[in-house]
Design a binder for these strands. Structure first.
Lengths: 343, 343
DNA sequence: TAATCAAGGCCGACATCAGTT
DNA sequence: AAACTGATGTCGGCCTTGATT
């Protein structure tokens, strides 16, 4: 059993020899820095074609101390938001011929001990000479990771400004606030909130927005904590904790949790919006197909991903200073909300 | 506006100088090839710590013509299956300290003209000296991509064996077949199939399995084609095409399509399993929270991702020959299926 | 003989600078 | 002076060889 035979790829020298020029000229052909005559250019192009030559990026990386690569550290599962964010990052990276090195650490962030693993991943990225790093999961404890990364250009997905890094985030507080306001404006007073995983900044922000909106009206807040993930199971579990008399409306930390909540309530014969109103957060494509179609806060994760990449790229290539930006959510009204007692 | 100041990282030479040894000794310290005395080892470790030294991976890559990196080309959206697959790949890669370079091309595979973009992405990966490539989306036309990649170790996610590459896939035909059999065994005879995007091999496999099962019983097949993606909208659209008298049961190409179908039927006052039975494919976590809980074919994409990586790694490090493997689906019975006319 | 370490060359592309027309 | 090309050195680890204890 032996390793696969090394592929003997042609080098610039081979191309040069075949084209009857020096390898430096071939290098100029590729980089565009310096003159290459039309005649020479044609011969080089032909030689490249004949040999099936392809530039060795690793050699270039070493020489230039630049890889045109950014590292993306995605902590936790690839749920809707993170997947969309990755899509946005990918698209923007492709526009400027950058490559994404994605490390997904599917760790339980609610448990302890995920940090060493994350630090190892960052260490590997730094070794690989990535030009910048995106820390794509807002989570308690990210500050320590950012310190390690600095002074490399860094962006963290976060709602609050950071010292070491540019930060970009959805405005989770606004999402929670606006969702709650929507229900209050419909006339609901007993509104509860089903929170997301407690170590996630996004979950905390949404809960805070809910609390602020309730406080504004002088109404008591009631938050169901205890979600271990962003899944429907958490919504089902939360529904089990509540009695129908406890509330007339619910704001859930995201759409999937809303689905689980709806499903459990339906098992008890309670359907929205007849028996209660419900608002989710995210506006996943499937939310429009829930029964009833879900009113929710749209978060444009994809655009955010694109913007994140562009800001990081600006830091890398133009030395722009760290800054902060948030993306506002939008209320999407569907069938799951109505005034209380509308039946 | 100038580019960010280059970070002057220490090199092995700096470490060597500080530790009072030669850089070759420091290299041995890292690679483990050759002797390094305990005394020297300790001094080197200290110097590394003092300087905050980190190995430059790009230099190593160049010298060794090996990057411990594999490229992953993900065509189309990051839907449930592909996201789970990535998670499996990531996990297995981490076990052996490999890095994933993921290129997600969010192209419309139903449209023409996506191939050049895919070829460019592959070209970039080959330039970066990846040790192997995973083509993670089963799609019509992948053969041409595989030819370009060869003779680099390659795995494609596919249900059928390939000439150039190892292939691993879910058994979509079996999924379609078993889902249909389940309905037939319950006593249904008018069973229709809502197909997925037609350029996807998985969609075709599932449809074929459905047809085979129907043919086996001498029953006429009816397939609703026309889905442009794997989303719930496709299911809703399909439901609009059908009259209630057309069928007593449905097999949808995946769970999301089933959700859209359920939602549209409910709008017409028809609910499963009272008025019709329905089976999905994938067993997304949310499927258990649909109303009714969805009977579906579980596809273990995550394990498949892990296995894919391991097979590719075996090819890379031990020169194993291309082979083929499929992962069987499992029927998960929930509340959406019942004998016909069970109401 | 085994353990330990250093000197020099090499991977492949690119920058610099010198040289030619 | 402008257009064009080639020789040499460099990026930073790692391998080979050989010397010393």
């Amino acid at each position: 059993m032996s390793a696969a035979a090394p592929l003997d790829r042609p080098t610039m020298g081979d191309v040069a020899e075949r084209a009857g020029v020096s390898k430096q000229t071939v290098s100029r052909f590729f980089t565009g820095r310096g003159y290459v005559g039309d005649d020479t250019r044609a011969r080089i192009a032909e030689a490249i074609d004949d040999l099936g030559y392809r530039r060795n990026q690793t050699a270039s990386n070493l020489r230039l101390s630049r890889t045109d690569t950014i590292g993306v550290l995605a902590l936790g599962g690839l749920v809707y938001g993170s997947a969309e964010l990755l899509t946005g990052l990918s698209r923007a990276a492709r526009d400027v011929e950058f490559t994404l090195v994605i490390t997904q650490l599917d760790l339980d962030l609610e448990a302890v001990g995920w940090e060493p693993e994350a630090l190892r991943a960052i260490d590997r990225m730094l070794s690989s000479q990535v030009d910048g790093i995106v820390l794509s999961t807002p989570v308690q404890g990210e500050e320590r990771l950012l310190e390690v990364i600095s002074p490399l250009p860094t962006i963290t997905v976060s709602e609050r400004p950071h010292v070491f890094a540019t930060s970009v985030g959805t405005d989770s507080r606004a999402a929670g606030y606006l969702a709650t306001r929507h229900l209050l404006d419909l006339g609901h007073e007993r509104v509860v909130h089903v929170a997301g995983p407690r170590t996630r900044n996004e979950a905390r922000g949404r809960a805070q927005g809910y609390r602020d909106a309730m406080a504004e009206r002088g109404l008591p807040a009631r938050v169901v904590e205890g979600a271990r993930d962003w899944g429907a199971g958490s919504g089902q579990w939360a529904a089990v904790q509540l009695r129908a008399s406890d509330f007339t409306a619910v704001v859930t930390a995201n759409d999937e949790i809303a689905l689980g909540f709806l499903s459990e309530m339906r098992a008890r014969g309670l359907v929205a919006p007849r028996d209660f109103s419900i608002v989710g957060v995210d506006d996943m494509p499937i939310a429009a197909h829930f029964s009833p179609a879900l009113t929710t806060m749209r978060m444009d994760f994809r655009s955010m991903g694109e913007e994140i990449f562009r800001m990081l790229h600006a830091q890398i290539t133009r030395g722009e200073q760290p800054s902060h930006r948030t993306f506002p959510p939008t209320l999407i009204e569907r069938a799951s909300t109505a005034p209380p007692g509308a039946a």
